[in-house]
Simulated scan of single mutants.
Amino acid sequence: MTTLRCAVLDDFQEVARGRADWARLADRVDVRFLRRHLTAHDELVAEIGDCEIVVVMRERTPFPAELFARLPKLRLLITSGLRNASIDLAAAAAHGVTVCGTPSSSEPPAELTWALLLGLARGVVTENGNLRSGGPWQSTLGADLHGRRLGLLGLGKIGARVARVGAAFGMDVAAWSQNLTGERAAEAGATLAPSKEELLATSDFVSVHLVLSERTRGLVGADDLRRMRPTAYLVNTSRAAIVDQDALVRALREGWIAGAGSDVFETEPLPLDHPLRTAPNFLGLPHLGYVTRGNYDGYFQGAVEDIEAYLAGSPIRTLG
């Protein structure tokens, strides 16, 4: 039997090998794990051009049409999760590549949303840094959550989970998106805001939970950030491009808002000279929303299942 080659990309933490039983494939597939992030297509083709199977982590490595054209041996592309906007599914089909997804949980990104929101509200990073360095004892004044308004842009699976936690904190939870109804909002324990503008102008905390699309790209621009209260905080664990990044930097530097937290960036890893790295009152994380033991088990065990099903002639969790 011919042995196929498989590359698992962007294994930053070097944990992919241990999160699934890859030995189940040993007699049919030679699997290698790549930690270093490859951005240039020439470099990527040199590394995986001999592979029939490639496993990608979320949207870390885009697969546009021109990349498929340079990978003639590729037959199966597996992405963690069941959605990946950075894969050109039409191009995959045109080149005879099957694209499959894996199980993914909505709990971890909802939990991380609260890590960012609470970290901002209570100055956690600043106070911890002061404590460890011998700096001032109590240098910040925390923002209250109880009785304050939490505004959610988007109320899907993740947004609804965030809404329920907000209600548990005693917050007034409101939500808005283009297609959200009052009935759907009420089911999640939120009220429907009459408009995006009203939601931003009246919320003490705003959290973004929308899918990136042509309708949502740049949805929160400079005018929207200016509309927010100077004491308000913005959190984005969805997709960076939903918020105008240049406007966000300006809002932080000029004090339009009290602070912002983000787990997502338009270029990842974030360039060392990116202005958000030095923006005041910014709490940033390296896209950790989905990075938990449970999710990784689902991703990599699901990848093994996808490969086995493909080899059996019955692909599962196909996309496109």
Score class of each variant (00 low, 15 high):
residue 231 T to E: 14
residue 235 V to P: 06
residue 228 M to Q: 08
residue 221 G to F: 09
residue 164 R to C: 06
residue 247 A to N: 11
residue 197 E to C: 00
residue 220 V to Y: 03
residue 157 K to P: 01
residue 237 T to C: 15
residue 185 A to H: 03
residue 242 I to V: 14
residue 211 V to T: 15
residue 156 G to R: 09
residue 140 T to I: 11
residue 203 S to H: 04
residue 236 N to T: 08
residue 214 E to M: 10
residue 229 R to D: 04
residue 224 D to C: 09
residue 254 E to P: 05
residue 247 A to R: 14
residue 199 L to N: 02
residue 220 V to K: 07
residue 166 G to K: 07
residue 191 T to H: 12
residue 228 M to L: 01
residue 237 T to V: 15
residue 243 V to C: 09
residue 163 A to D: 10
residue 163 A to H: 02
residue 190 A to M: 05
residue 156 G to K: 06
residue 167 A to L: 13
residue 218 G to R: 03
residue 228 M to I: 03
residue 182 G to Q: 04
residue 154 G to F: 11
residue 180 L to I: 00
residue 247 A to F: 12
residue 214 E to C: 00
residue 243 V to R: 09
residue 149 R to I: 02
residue 151 G to S: 10
residue 179 N to G: 04
residue 185 A to V: 00
residue 199 L to G: 10
residue 188 A to G: 05
residue 239 R to Q: 03
residue 243 V to M: 08
residue 182 G to R: 07
residue 194 P to C: 04
residue 252 L to Y: 14
residue 221 G to K: 03
residue 225 L to T: 08
residue 189 G to M: 05
residue 179 N to W: 07
residue 227 R to D: 01
residue 188 A to C: 12
residue 198 E to F: 02
residue 155 L to C: 04
residue 167 A to F: 02
residue 165 V to T: 14
residue 153 L to Q: 01
residue 246 D to L: 12
residue 169 F to M: 12
residue 199 L to S: 08
residue 210 L to F: 01
residue 211 V to D: 14
residue 188 A to L: 06
residue 212 L to F: 09
residue 257 I to R: 05
residue 148 R to W: 05
residue 206 V to R: 09
residue 222 A to Q: 13
residue 203 S to Q: 09
residue 161 R to T: 05
residue 204 D to G: 14
residue 164 R to Y: 08
residue 172 D to S: 13
residue 155 L to M: 01
residue 173 V to G: 11
residue 258 A to S: 10
residue 174 A to M: 13
residue 239 R to D: 04
residue 230 P to E: 10
residue 228 M to C: 07
residue 214 E to R: 13
residue 219 L to Q: 09
residue 233 Y to D: 06
residue 164 R to L: 12
residue 173 V to E: 10
residue 178 Q to D: 13
residue 144 D to K: 15
residue 143 A to P: 00
residue 249 V to K: 13
residue 204 D to L: 12
residue 247 A to V: 11
residue 223 D to V: 03
residue 210 L to H: 06
residue 142 G to V: 02
residue 210 L to K: 13
residue 178 Q to C: 00
residue 158 I to K: 04
residue 181 T to D: 05
residue 190 A to N: 04
residue 234 L to K: 07
residue 155 L to Y: 03
residue 253 R to K: 15
residue 194 P to Q: 05
residue 154 G to V: 06
residue 209 H to N: 12
